[in-house]
Structures are given as C-alpha cells and as structure tokens.
Design a protein around this nucleic acid. Structure first.
Length: 548
RNA sequence: GCCCCGAUAGCUCAAUUGGAUAGAGCAACGGUCUUCUAAACCGUAGGCUACAGGUUCGAUUCCUGUUCGGGGUACCA
C-alpha cells in the first residue's frame, strides 16, 4: 500500500480520466503532479493543454469545463484554480496535511519505508585505489558518493555489500618498493636517487623508517618483495583509517591476485578463445570487442605474455555476476570511461546478461587555492590528502561537500574557503535546524509540557506550517528518485529545502507559548520535522547534533 | 580525427527528468535579537540559460551543428 500522497495523485488522475470519458472526449496522455510553487496549489495537471490540439479550443476554456465537472467532488480538495496557459491547480484542505504528523511520529525512521529492495542483493564497488599512497581529495568524492549510494540502497531494504577491489602487485607496486628502498638507503646515510617514475612523497620516508625499525639495517634490493609488502600494508591501513574517519567501512576487500591464483584469469581467457572471440596479432592476444558494441578490439594479453588490466577486470566482473548479486554498481572516475564497454562486451561474449551492471562515472575534483587551480599527482606528492581535508573541515562538512552537487559536473574545491569560512557552509544550516528543534523539545519539558500526545492537530493551519508538512510529504518521492538516479545530491537539495521551510516557520511562529493547546500541536509538528531531517542526514552519513 | 561529461546571476551551484514569472548560497547594499539558539529571518540589486538552427501548445531540459573547458581514445591502471 502506497502512502496517501500517492493515492491523492491517483485519485485526481482517475477523476480527470473519468470526466474525459463522460464528456466523450478522446483520451490523451497528461500529467498530474505535485506543484512547483505554492501559488500553483498542491497538485497540478496539464490536461487542458494536452487536450487543446484535438479539441481545437483554448486550453483555458477546456480547463473551466473540467473544473465545473469536478468542483466539490474530490475528497480533501478545497478548490480548483486555473492559471495562465491553462494549468489546473488543486488546493488541498489543511486536514490532508495534518494527517502526516501522526504517521511520521509513529513510524519514525521507517516513515514511508516500504522495503522495495527487500530480498535483493546489491554490490557497490567504490574507491578501489591501489595501495601506493594516501587517499587524495579525488578519491574522497568517490568514497562519499559510494557510501551514500549504499545507504540509499539500505534504506530501501537492499542487502548491500560495499566492496573494494585492489591490486598490490605489478609495476606500480614495484615502483613503490623501489622508492621506499631508496629512502631506506638514505636513512643509512647514502644518497640514492628515487627511481624514474617513483614516488616522492613524505610518507615514503616514514614507511622506510618503520621498515628499518622492523627489519634492521642490513636489507638490500634483493629484499624488494619485503619492501613492497611492508609499504602496501602500511599504506592500506592509512587508507582504511581515512575512510573510517568518514564513517566508511567496506565489507569485502577483493584482491586482484586471487583472480590469478584461483585460475579465474586463465579460464576467462580460455573460454573467450574457445568461443572464437580472440585472435593473435603482433604476438598479442586480442579480444573482438567491436563485435559486441565496443569501439574497437582490445589487447587482453601483451606480447610479453602479461595480461593487460582488462583481463582481470573481466574476470572480476564475471565473479560479481556469479556471486549472485541482483544489482552490481561500479563507481569510477571519469578517467575510467573507456574501460567498462570492453568489460561488458567480454561478458556478453561469454554469454552473461550485463543488464544488472550499472556503471556510475563521476567527474573530477578540481582543487583551487585562492582562485588558482592546483595540479595534483600522487607520484609527485603535490596533492592534498583526504586526511588533511578532514582535519580542516571535519567529516560532516567533507561528506556534505562531496555530494552536494551532481556527479556529472566537476567539483570545485576551494581549500581556502573550506578552511576559514566554515560558518558559511550549508551543512551547518541543516544541523542548526536540527539542533534548534531539539532545543525546543528540551525547552518544552522545562515549561512542564511533558506530554503532548493529546494535541489537536487541526490547529496546524498557518501557511508556513502547511508548506513545511508538504515538504515532509515528499520524502518518499525523493528517496525513490535517489534510488532510480543513484544521485545522492537530490537528498542534499531536499534537506536544504526542508531546513529552509523550518527556519522560516521558526522565525514567524513561536512553538512554546502560554497557549498550551497550540503549543502541543506545534510540538508534535516539530518532532515530526526533526524525524524527517534526522532520517535524511542519516542517509547522507552526516551527524544530527542536538546542540550547536 | 573519434567517444564521454560540462557550459545557467560577479563566484559556486539548483531547476522534481518537456511545463507556468529560471531559483538558492556566497559576495554587494538595507532591515530584524527584552522571546524556544541571529550558524537564523526579511528586503533590494543581479539573466539573450555559451552560440546558431530544429522538433511542439510549451525547450535550461530533446535533436543537429559551432565555440570553449575537463576526461578518454595504450601491448599504463
């Protein structure tokens, strides 16, 4: 059973359709939806505009005729107004809105939560950085985005697996080992150049120091594997710590090496060969990706005999499918844009249905310092780490900042701004609203209004209150939109609107006054708003402080 | 060359997936604390939605070009 907000839309839709039939008019597709602005009523329909062409009449006249046929016949609707080009705007009675309050107070965190994903397994893969250095501001975007999306799934009742895919072998790791080794030699008083393409960050020296404390001073380049192992483990711990500071913990860490050791790489390659989707050219093994919709054919195995990154990616995604997820979500940076069509093509070639895989690409984070762009590179270590950002702004601000805009657009991060003007940050606006509400509830008990269960909700009729409840009623729609779009930004925008409506109400109306009956009704309202705001903040992973 | 994103107020971004008079926050100017928290509220100013066409009752949104930014187009990940 859907919430009655939905029922209201359906009722109006049906009444309009029936009226159309009653008048013997040819049916046309039309919309019934929540109004954009309060002076357009609560629900609007474009039916008259849609009919204008067939009827060859002015939309306004059609609307008037429909209005006359419907006026007073829809329960809960106070009046119908017709505006400008011919929109029909339906205004609801206050009782319609007042009914939301007891529902919210009874259901609390489960308000309008129906569990559409119950019994379904979803995997969200995100961050997946190889352990070559601390997480950067760029990784942070993906981390927060992925976690917020996971929380959206959880709210809808999905069984969510947060997964991190990494590789601690290969060329990059060898460079890391050599870089640490160079610093290690340096600690022993020698001057040794960092290898070409090596890592130059401060953290490399620290790792070398720790390595020396554990393994002593007698190690040589022959022990490179121990350098790599030590460095990658240490870096991985710092990565996990950074994520933990943001409240992010992955359920599964999937190591690319396992795909090799378990023979899954070989079997994928063998199957593709067997099915005739590969060929050899220039000593390399190519995959006929172009036969499956990809741009061009790709190399799977180099002429050195070493697989490209594509092959393990394919094997990994086959594993994801075999593990029985109903939905697989991959979150990548825009630089990975070219790789996923090949993976999907290969899976199709192997006979798998790829429709359950959803790839989300987010654009880059541009860092600015005093209006100037900062170029960043992990290797050169001229980057700002995620940890430093959390030090500066705190986890709540960092999380909010990362998801407050569309993942398709570039995120412009001004360090100077994050550093100095924290009071201008919108996240405080939301949290302040929550703290204010908590304070009112505390204050009311001091005024000896211990129970307000017996409130008369018909006293809640001021426009600011109707507006506020109207926004609360949208919560479910926003959660649905978040689920279909996998774009948490819709929730941040929504909560901002909710907080605005609350702050406006607060500035106009006092909650706790000498009028006990009115106070009780408004206390119920405040409690309901607090519940919705806290629900939303929880989904974004942002704290809801009781005091500020 | 080809592919993917973006371009909206001085700046950073919205616009409920094609609706009505394109909205917020900063920054500028003016107003509001004897009250449950002024991290708030109210007002003024700010726009040829990059440009040119097209689709229709109606376009910031969809289509085709063009310009400018970012990313890709590896036998790097």
């Amino acid at each position: 059973m859907r919430n009655f907000e939905e029922q209201m839309l359906q009722t109006i839709q049906k009444m309009l359709t029936d009226t159309l039939a009653g008048l013997g008019w040819e049916p046309v597709p039309f919309m019934v939806e929540r109004s954009r602005k309060s002076n357009f009523g609560h629900v609007s329909s474009n039916i008259a505009l849609a009919l204008a062409k067939n009827q060859k009449r002015r939309p306004q006249d059609i609307a008037e005729e429909l209005k006359a046929a419907l006026e007073g016949k829809i329960g809960g609707v106070e009046k119908i107004e017709i505006l400008s080009p011919g929109f029909m705007n339906f205004f609801f009675l206050p009782a319609y809105f007042q009914e939301f309050i007891p529902r919210i107070r009874a259901q609390k965190a489960d308000f309008q939560r129906e569990g559409t994903g119950r019994g379904k397994k979803v995997q969200v893969e995100f961050v997946s950085a190889n352990p070559t250095g601390p997480l950067t501001i760029g990784h942070g975007r993906q981390a927060v985005l992925g976690d917020a999306i996971a929380r959206i799934f959880e709210w809808h009742g999905y069984d969510v697996t947060r997964e991190y895919y990494f590789n601690d072998a290969g060329r990059q790791m060898r460079m890391l080992g050599l870089s640490v080794y160079a610093r290690y030699r340096e600690l022993l008083g020698e001057t040794l150049e960092i290898p070409e393409g090596g890592y130059e960050g401060e953290y490399i020296s620290e790792i070398a120091q720790h390595y020396m404390e554990r393994y002593g001073k007698g190690r040589s380049e022959k022990d490179l594997d121990t350098f790599i192992d030590h460095a990658s483990k240490e870096i991985f711990i710092t990565i996990q710590d950074s994520l933990k500071r943001l409240g992010i913990v992955h359920d599964v860490y999937y190591n690319e090496k396992d795909l090799y050791s378990s023979g899954k790489i070989d079997s994928v390659l063998a199957e593709l060969k067997e099915k005739g989707y590969t060929y050899e050219e220039g000593g390399a093994v190519w995959f006929k990706a172009s036969e499956f919709g990809a741009e061009k054919d790709r190399v799977l195995v180099k002429n050195t005999g070493e697989p490209t990154y594509r092959l393990p990616d394919i094997a990994y995604h086959r594993e994801k499918i075999l593990r029985g997820f109903d939905l697989i979500v991959d979150i990548f940076g825009a630089d990975h844009h070219a790789t996923y069509p090949d993976v999907k093509a290969a899976l199709s070639a192997l006979g798998y249905d790829t429709s359950s895989i959803r790839v989300l690409l987010h654009q880059f984070v541009t860092l600015t310092q005093d209006g100037e762009k900062v170029k960043m590179s992990t290797r050169k270590a001229n980057f700002v780490t995620l940890d430093e950002l959390i030090d500066i702004a705190g986890p709540d601000v960092v999380r909010y900042f990362y998801i407050m805009r569309n993942m398709d657009s570039h995120l412009n991060f001004d360090i100077a701004l994050a550093q100095k003007q924290t009071d201008e940050n919108p996240v405080f606006y939301l949290q302040y609203a929550h703290a204010r509400m908590c304070n009112i509830l505390v204050h009311s008990s001091e005024k000896h209004i211990d129970s307000y269960e017996d409130a008369d909700l018909s006293l809640l009729s001021e426009p600011e209150i109707i507006e506020l409840i109207g926004i609360m009623a949208e919560f479910r729609d926003v959660m649905d939109l978040c689920l279909t779009s996998l774009e948490p930004m819709y929730m941040t925008n929504y909560l901002y609107r909710l907080a605005t409506a609350f702050h406006k109400f607060y500035s106009v109306h006092r909650v706790v006054t000498e009028d006990i009956a009115l106070s009780k009704a408004r206390l119920q309202l405040i409690e309901a708003v607090k519940i919705i705001l806290a629900n939303g903040l929880r989904i974004l992973g942002i704290s809801a402080p009781e005091k500020m």
